[in-house]
Design a binder for these strands. Structure first.
Length: 426
RNA sequence: GGUGAGGUGGGUGAGUGGCUGAAACCAACGGUUUGCUAAACCGUCGUACUCCGAAAGGGGUACCGAGGGUUCGAAUCCCUCCCUCACCGCCA
């Protein structure tokens, strides 16, 4: 949620930034409406406080009269309070109305794109921040897409996933199950070595948590919801992990906070279909190792670059061709100020697959979840949050299968061999 | 799931209608003292909104799990919900 304070102070910058997003070309009127509503809120608040103050002091007088036995004086003051309360009602209503209106408008506004975010509406407008400098692997005519390789080498079984749950659910077996476990351990070890504390978080979260990181109300339909217990299945570890610090005021010296967590991620992906969702490209449940950081506002962009380096290192160790995109305004997530996507080349499908998304949310999440810093000088301000996938497994598995296929089986990248226990998956 | 107890500031915990935004202690922070450490002593030590002020600072309002109610006045009384703890039941 955008900070009201900034909307007032840096209105021009915010409007300019929002213009980069699709559907926010005419945002000026709404911003003005917010400011007007906030003015109304302040007026009502002041009036309300003034009357309450009078009631408080009269109530004290009533107490004194009662003590000294002056009953009639007390009674007349009581009438006065009743009057004031009546008068106060209108300000109270105005205040509540203004607050509700503010909240409902603000919650609909996305984050302001960082100045470096390119203009653009669609994924084609994303900027290639770092292109793949090497050769893309050239596969022979006998090369198979990952869903065929999966059958050949007993990696996963789509039909069983359908039988047990439904379409979009994958059952990994033998080689695949082991590869999953190897990747999870590899990614967690790498994150640990980079200074991230490992977290095992709940996979179901309450509405406050989903709101804190911005999944509610923006993406309500994308989460699985357990109605009976009023809980949501997490779409990413970002939700439970970041919410550890909901409603917390951190001391400056406690920063930065670096956390990592492995969780399955659940996404309804309602309305997705077609060739692009085949195999592991888009599934309802996949495994992901997430890295989350809470940073001082002055350091958050340095931290973002550091996260980029970490993710890049993982892809290099997996010996996969990758590229990095800086997302354009139209393709960025609702809560993000700046996002870099990592894409891995899928050799058999001849297309790039997104395997990581690394974002700085600045104060967008922390404003919602009241995650603040108390500086050494005693000032309280919102922290910055960042997160990124490091990495998402399903597509990495697809990519390893396709890019590293040989006549004898799937060659495992060196870094994974100790985790998998063999050099060739066959 | 059943029964009982309870939810107060970073922690322990006092407070049963007005003098309590909240005692006391601990922790933390600043200082005095000190060869160093420790101890002792002094001081500071909630958040949000808002008004005045250039600022320093000062004033007001709200908040004692959440929401509602009673009352001139609620941390304190009543109702609903949530949560925690203990015991029982069930169970990986």
């Amino acid at each position: 949620m955008l900070e009201l304070r900034l909307l007032r102070q840096e209105k021009a910058r915010i409007i300019k930034g929002l213009h980069k997003r699709a559907g926010y070309e005419n945002i000026e009127k709404l911003i003005d409406e917010i400011i007007e509503t906030d003015d109304e809120r302040k007026t009502a608040q002041s009036q309300n406080d003034l009357i309450l103050s009078q009631i408080n002091s009269i109530s004290k007088e009533v107490g004194e009269f009662m003590k000294s036995g002056k009953k009639s004086e007390a009674e007349s003051l009581k009438l006065k309070v009743a009057e004031l309360k009546n008068e106060n009602k209108q300000f109270d209503d105005r205040l509540r109305l203004a607050q509700e209106k503010l909240e409902s408008i603000l919650i609909q506004l996305p984050n302001v794109p960082h100045e470096s975010v390119p203009n653009g509406k669609t994924p084609e407008d994303n900027e290639i921040y770092k292109a793949w400098s090497g050769e893309l692997p050239v596969l022979g005519p006998e090369a198979l897409p990952h869903w065929e390789l999966a059958k050949k080498y007993k990696v996963f079984d789509m039909e069983l996933g359908v039988k047990i749950s439904g379409s979009g659910f994958i059952l990994y077996r033998q080689n695949g199950a082991r590869l999953q476990r190897a990747l999870i351990n590899f990614f967690l070890d790498e994150a640990g070595a980079a200074g991230y504390e490992e977290i095992q978080a709940p996979l179901l979260v309450n509405g406050d948590s989903a709101r804190g990181t911005g999944q509610l109300p923006d993406k309500e339909g994308q989460m699985y919801y357990v109605e009976k217990d009023d809980l949501y299945l997490i779409p990413t570890a970002e939700v439970p992990v970041t919410n550890i610090y909901r409603d917390v005021i951190l001391k400056e010296m406690e920063l930065p906070i670096k956390l990592t967590g492995y969780t399955p991620c659940f996404r309804r992906e309602a309305g997705s279909y077609g060739a692009h969702v085949k195999g592991l490209n888009r599934v309802h449940q996949f495994d992901k190792i997430e890295i989350v950081r809470i940073e001082h506002p002055d350091n958050s962009y340095t931290a973002l670059m550091d996260m980029l380096t970490h993710v890049e290192g993982l892809l290099q160790k997996l010996e996969l061709p990758y590229r990095i995109l800086r997302l354009c305004g139209g393709d960025m997530g609702f809560a993000s100020a700046l996002t870099f996507d990592f894409e891995v080349w899928s050799a058999a499908q001849q297309r790039w697959l997104e395997v990581s998304s690394v974002s700085n949310f600045e104060t967008f999440q922390t404003n919602r979840m009241k995650l603040r810093i108390k500086t050494d000088s005693g000032e309280i301000k919102l922290a910055h949050t960042l997160n990124g996938s490091a990495l998402a497994l399903a597509r990495i598995v697809a990519s390893i299968l396709e890019n590293h296929q040989t006549e004898n089986g799937i060659r495992l990248p060196k870094a994974l061999v100790p985790y998998f226990g063999k050099e060739i998956l066959a």
